[in-house]
């Protein structure tokens, strides 16, 4: 069937020292001796160890399949190739930013002031930081007042990369170091305080 002959495989080169040269007859004799008789040269008998090997291999695969079924995580593959529970895990993360609506539920005035002015679209927590803990339980602590100076400049300091339509000031020349909220109301930056207090700029 195959072009392999014992001549090709065995005993040609003394260096390979194939077993057939020397030990084969001995081994074979011993093996026969062990069995205490002659071993018929039947293919079935001669292939027994191969069948055993195959059986072991198949058994290994079978065990793997059974174990796999048992330890595969629950719900895996329900929606796709992933653990269905991972969706819920991702949903269960805590929320830090409560959202403007929530703040407005208690703090009417800042909300109204904000809506009336140019800062109307800005969410409270953009300036006040994440406050869900405070919103859930105000008694747990009072949020620190934001540092107006740094806050305002971060958004309003002149910067060539900012869109031209966005109101920007060079704080040094605009206020000369004075606190921004001494003239501007953070919640309503365009009105109130400014009127009359400053003659002009630019």
């Amino acid at each position: 069937m195959f072009p392999v002959t014992s001549e090709h495989r065995r005993g040609n080169n003394p260096l390979t020292g194939q077993a057939s040269n020397e030990c084969d007859p001995a081994c074979a004799k011993q093996a026969r001796g062990d069995k205490g008789g002659s071993v018929p040269d039947s293919p079935l008998r001669n292939g027994a160890h191969l069948i055993l090997l195959l059986a072991a291999l198949l058994a290994g695969i079978a065990i793997f399949l059974v174990v796999r079924q048992a330890v595969i995580p629950e719900g895996f593959g329900l929606y796709g190739h992933y653990r269905a529970g991972a969706l819920k895990d991702n949903r269960m993360k805590p929320v830090s930013f409560a959202g403007r609506e929530v703040c407005a539920g208690c703090h009417f005035d800042p909300d109204e002031a904000l809506r009336a002015g140019k800062h109307g679209k800005i969410s409270c927590e953009t300036c006040h930081g994440p406050q869900s803990a405070h919103a859930a339980d105000p008694a747990s602590g009072v949020p620190a007042k934001p540092n107006a100076q740094g806050l305002c400049r971060r958004c309003h300091e002149s910067d060539a990369a900012k869109p031209a339509h966005f109101p920007q000031v060079a704080s040094v020349s605009h206020s000369g170091g004075a606190a921004c909220n001494s003239c501007h109301e953070p919640h309503k930056p365009g009105f109130a305080k400014i009127a009359g207090e400053r003659s002009g700029k630019k």
Partner: peptide, 17 residues
């Protein structure tokens, strides 16, 4: 995902002025 599945927007969009 924990926010948008509760009807909130993302933290980045919330903070974007």
């Amino acid at each position: 995902y924990h926010r948008i599945t509760q009807g909130l927007t993302t933290a980045c969009a919330e903070a974007c002025p």
